[in-house]
Amino acid sequence: MVNGSDEANTGRGPADGTGLAEASGRHAWTALALDVVIPLAVFYGSRAAGTDQWLALVLAGVAPAAGIVLTWVRQRRVDATALFVIAAMALSLLVAMVSGDPRALLARESWITGALGLWILGSLALARPFLLDVAIKVSPPGAARRFDELWRHSPVFHRWLQLASVGWGTAFLLDAVARVVMAYALPLDSVPLLGVLVLVVMLVAAQAIVMVHGRRSGALARGRG
């Protein structure tokens, strides 16, 4: 595959289904790492330092928001998805602070993943689905234009991207349900790590199904219908 710098310079490249899967996948996993690793480190580091569970969860919840704000400052633009995540964090944190219940703080994570799942599924009714929009934003100009052309003119690619959206959206919704169950049924200190493991398993399974279908249907092999 041609590297990103070559595509950016020529405005061309193998922008087929595989390229979109790689672009959106890289973005999703990078975001997941930043939004997961840092909060986990903050939570378990705070607990090791003797902080109570409620405060450790509050601090862990602030970490991703701080990262988003720093990205806004660096890029000098506000991303709608990031704004949505910030709003969901703020609302869920407010509810948890009013209740004073650490398990409510744990359950608040389900608000974010559940809403994101609904957003991905609901975006299928828009001109461009969420996953396509993400891939276009993080790809070189030539590849971005090719993705948009494939979405509008390739029935095979169109159907595959719809399946990908359903797969990822469903994975986030299942994760939201699992987080609520774990928050109120398991030892509190074990839930943050288990929540991450469940989300990773859900997303890996969804991505595997999407990739297998993409290759069998020809969406990834040819990138056009």
Rank of each mutant, 00 (worst) to 15 (best):
Q53I: 15
A90S: 10
L150M: 13
G114L: 09
L94E: 06
A48Y: 11
I38T: 12
W160H: 15
D16I: 00
V58H: 03
S217C: 09
S110K: 09
R76T: 14
A31Y: 03
W54G: 10
L199T: 15
M1W: 06
H153I: 01
L161I: 11
L199N: 07
G117V: 08
R76D: 14
A183H: 02
A63G: 05
L34A: 11
G19F: 02
D133T: 15
R74F: 05
P64D: 06
R145E: 13
T113V: 14
M182Y: 06
L105I: 09
V85F: 06
I38S: 06
A107V: 06
F172A: 07
A96G: 14
L132T: 08
G167Q: 04
R12T: 15
A127D: 07
M211W: 12
H158V: 07
T170R: 00
L126S: 05
D16W: 00
A164I: 00
L20E: 05
G169Y: 01
V58L: 13
G169W: 01
M1E: 09
R128L: 11
A143F: 00
A15G: 15
I136W: 01
G11V: 09
A221M: 01
D35R: 02
A49W: 11
L34S: 04
G17I: 08
W168V: 08
S5Q: 09
V36E: 01
A115C: 13
H158D: 10
A171R: 00
M202N: 12
V98F: 13
R146Q: 13
Q75C: 05
G169T: 02
A219T: 01
R145V: 09
A31N: 10
V177K: 02
T18N: 04
P39V: 12
L188G: 05
I38D: 05
E149Q: 13
A41V: 15
A185D: 07
A164E: 01
A66R: 04
A66P: 01
T71Q: 11
A28S: 09
A205K: 08
L173A: 02
A135G: 02
A208W: 06
D79R: 11
